[in-house]
């Protein structure tokens, strides 16, 4: 018989949570975000070289305003996807929330009431999704696919296919005004980003979102209220979609039943570009922001270059494929290390 071998233990460093170690760790994490960031900058350089107007301040603000609606939705979507879910109903909620608000305004309801009603609808629609997923046990994909259809149908029924016009002039403030040189929707988007970033990284709720998405069973056994967390996550997504719908209605100065069609795909694409794993439990909001900007810059740059919108769709699809592929390879490499 042989003697026992000494068990080989891994490198024993004293566990220090000093500032320096944390800083190094933070840098390390940022670098993995760099893959997307580098792609984004490359895209910007390319368009700058091909179109002199691209880099101008006006155009940059234009890009930011174009993506503001998608960006706001993508924040909610990031929460949902990190919690290992998906929300396909966001585009329809944008449409219906806009129509509800526009309809109330046309009928002379005071603006704050109309806006709050639109926001409340968004929140409630999200919580309804949450109920279908938690209490109903429906897969998130199916639950939100169904509500996507219901809300869109309701929006089109409500408007009978016609746009709702005749909104009070003041309503345009949300979508059309500027705060200093920056369009108001862009300001709202950055406020939403900031709130989302704070909640995800610095609150107990944020931790629970990662926990539920990463390992739902372990979350339950650690005393996390899994159902409540999921209700809140879908609620957030619905609320931000409602907000986005009101901004869109204000920009268009009308309520349109078909508004926001396809937004869910752009929001999901922003998350995917930003390295949010669709398996849940991983990713960060910074990635989503960059992802949303890539989509915006791509559309804007190609329009400046007179690329037909049909080609634009193809290019967008190919870019998403490539970006996610590279991201996966980078991650696999990091795991081997």
């Amino acid at each position: 018989m042989k003697e026992h071998a000494e068990p080989i233990t891994c490198v024993a460093k004293p566990a220090r949570v000093g500032f320096y170690a944390r800083f190094l760790d933070w840098i390390g994490r940022q670098i993995f975000q760099m893959g997307v960031l580098v792609g984004f900058l490359a895209l910007c350089v390319f368009f700058t070289l091909t179109s002199p107007y691209f880099l101008s301040f006006d155009n940059m603000m234009n890009v930011a305003r174009q993506i503001s609606m998608i960006g706001i939705i993508a924040v909610g979507m990031t929460f949902v996807i990190i919690a290992a879910g998906i929300d396909l109903s966001v585009g329809s909620v944008v449409g219906l929330a806009g129509c509800i608000t526009a309809g109330l305004l046309r009928d002379g309801i005071p603006m704050p009431v109309a806006i709050l009603t639109g926001l409340s609808f968004g929140l409630i629609s999200g919580i309804a999704n949450g109920f279908l997923v938690t209490k109903g046990g429906l897969p998130p994909f199916i639950a939100t696919l169904a509500s996507m259809s219901v809300w869109r149908g309701l929006a089109l029924t409500y408007t009978q296919g016609y746009a709702i016009f005749g909104l009070p002039k003041g309503f345009g403030f949300i979508g059309r005004s500027y705060m200093g040189p920056v369009p108001t929707p862009v300001v709202i988007m950055f406020v939403v980003f900031a709130i989302g970033y704070y909640v995800l990284n610095h609150t107990a709720f944020g931790r629970y979102v990662y926990a539920v998405g990463g390992n739902i069973q372990a979350a339950k056994l650690s005393g996390v209220h899994v159902d409540r967390t999921l209700l809140a996550v879908y609620g957030l997504s619905g609320f931000f979609s409602g907000l986005s719908g009101i901004i869109l209605a204000s920009r268009l100065m009308s309520g349109q039943g078909a508004a926001g069609t396809g937004y869910e795909l752009d929001a999901i694409a922003s998350c995917a570009l930003g390295g949010i794993s669709l398996m849940g439990g991983e990713g960060n909001l910074v990635g989503t922001i960059i992802g949303a900007f890539i989509i915006g810059v791509l559309a804007n740059g190609m329009t400046l270059l007179n690329v037909s919108s049909f080609y634009q769709m193809m290019v967008k699809g190919l870019v998403i494929m490539l970006a996610v592929f590279v991201d996966l390879k980078l991650k696999a490499r990091r795991e081997k290390k």
């Binding site: 107990a204 931790r207 990463g214 390992n215 372990a218 650690s222 439990g281």
Partner: peptide, 26 residues
């Protein structure tokens, strides 16, 4: 399967059951 959040840091794993108590207003 039942306890760890593998993709999260040691910190989050240790504090998970008490994080609400460690937070201002939960």
């Amino acid at each position: 399967e039942q306890a760890l959040f593998l993709a999260r840091p040691v910190r989050d794993n240790i504090s998970m059951a008490v994080i609400r108590l460690l937070s201002w207003l939960g």
